[in-house]
Design a binder for these strands. Sequence first.
DNA 1: CTGAAAGCGCTAACAT
DNA 2: ATGTTAGCGCTTTCAG
Lengths: 327, 327
Amino acid sequence: MRTKPAVPTLDDVAKLAGVSKSAASRALSGKNRPIASDKKARILQAAEELGYVANPFAQSLRESSTGLVAIVVNHIADLSDLTLFDSLIQAIQSLGKQALFIRLRSEDDIAEIKRNPFVHRVDAALIFSDLIEPEEAPTLFFTDKVIMLNGKKADTGLSVTINEELGIEKAVACANHHHVTKAILLCGRKTSVTERQRIESYHKFMECFNIDSIHVAFCDYSYESAFNHLQNQTYSDTSNLGIFCTSDAMAMAAVDFSRSKYPELIQRKVIYGFDNTPFSQMGGYCFSTIGYSKDEFIEMILKLLNKKTFKQTRSRHLSVDTEFYER
Amino acid sequence: MRTKPAVPTLDDVAKLAGVSKSAASRALSGKNRPIASDKKARILQAAEELGYVANPFAQSLRESSTGLVAIVVNHIADLSDLTLFDSLIQAIQSLGKQALFIRLRSEDDIAEIKRNPFVHRVDAALIFSDLIEPEEAPTLFFTDKVIMLNGKKADTGLSVTINEELGIEKAVACANHHHVTKAILLCGRKTSVTERQRIESYHKFMECFNIDSIHVAFCDYSYESAFNHLQNQTYSDTSNLGIFCTSDAMAMAAVDFSRSKYPELIQRKVIYGFDNTPFSQMGGYCFSTIGYSKDEFIEMILKLLNKKTFKQTRSRHLSVDTEFYER
DNA sequence: CTGAAAGCGCTAACAT
DNA sequence: ATGTTAGCGCTTTCAG
């Protein structure tokens, strides 16, 4: 194993260029600090020669910004998250910042991240995990740029929420067109706020369209959980039945369950997914689903990240509309 | 918007506890530095009271370690990556380190990450992206702990490779059992080293088992790319045909393509995937696939991350076996 | 065991 | 425009 290479410092650059440290700092700052152009060229040349890269730890010690953005998630293993985090990392990098993933499995982990020194020094935090309440965000992060993306929000904070009602209304209306008069609801975690809001929306519109809710099942968004649940179910009459699922993975399970036992559910196209993942329209599956533009979502996040001050409450809470994708 | 809260420093803790900064540092170091136990208690109490959390940027400036581990990827949007990165982040957190995702879309981005200051200061780098050659790793990272996970390796470096031959041999043998005498190969990017190795392995064992390679198609691992490619294909005789795919997503496309045009391929179970994702055995799909234990893979990575010195070359290059999952 | 002091690499205020 | 200097928060000598 090679020995650790000596990392060139600003001092090394300054010496090689025959100038002072501060001159070198100014030349390399990128912020158009006063410096003679010939000197600047010499310094840049020296930096290049040494392979100099500024030490962000030293920089952050001086400046208030650290260049780190925390992304706090429960887990990134959901189907719908596939492309989202990929784009999000790219968006953060486009801001010249770094994405720091914080994974929260349970409430116990919150105590752990309280001890995580990086967490407190990030320039901004994007909260996807529903384990974090808006009120406790200030105790976790030493920044005001905490953006709630988990459906929760505090008046004083920032948030981007998904307007799920729009898509849900259209999905239920579609079911109504397909002569659904009774439906089962396959949901995710009971403890999730967004999930409870979703259920409420479904019930509200089901009432509007005279669809009976015959069963609400709490799974965990996964294919397996939904499939296991369904396997124990028997329905005497499926002629007017519909199945609403709060994830595409669970809708896939519903389709597969129906394939053998109740193929008419598939033919009648009364299984509804959520998230608009590619799977909803791959040949093996084909079900209508609810979704929103990830690009728009990320754009909103960037908007909040970039803005320095927020005069109006309205501009601190953005929202993205959902759309219904009928297949 | 609230004003930025003043962050408590070690000095604040020391003052509150009525001790010196160095005493406070020792008490909080966790490394059993000499300190009177009553004093230590007072300091811990003061720190708790103030909600003190050490500034990692100041710490790293003094120490050589930064607590950051880079994960360098092309993109995390592949199906097979779903759970891997989730577990990996957790593993890195269990080491008390932070995962820093670096996303590389093209070779142009390498120049960009050369300018990314954090990249150079990580304690270790996990290279999944095949855009990075083992030789250039030392110019990108100021650490020797660069672990190549992209199938490439330099003698002097560290690596964990996947032994794909094992699974491929079994897959081809299985095809042979199913009377396959000619096969098409749906592959990923032509430029990928691992991909070329895979193709070589497939061809080697196809020769062993007297299976003709009638067509090698380069897609990009995705469902769409494979489906689009297949849609333009017509096969006069599929009675002894088999399809090997180097991703489960492409195998899904092969199944969906066959559904309408050549259902016998599905019945004969001669479509083979790669990665052992959950999709390979969800009701809508059911195809044999090649995979390896992600847990074992991560364990190997941790082994390399933890070890300080490596006497033998052998211990610097670890490998994980693949398994064939017949459905 | 304890505290004073040096210094990690950098930037900004200040004086020239 | 340039260099000198102070200091960000921390850990680690080094004396006592």
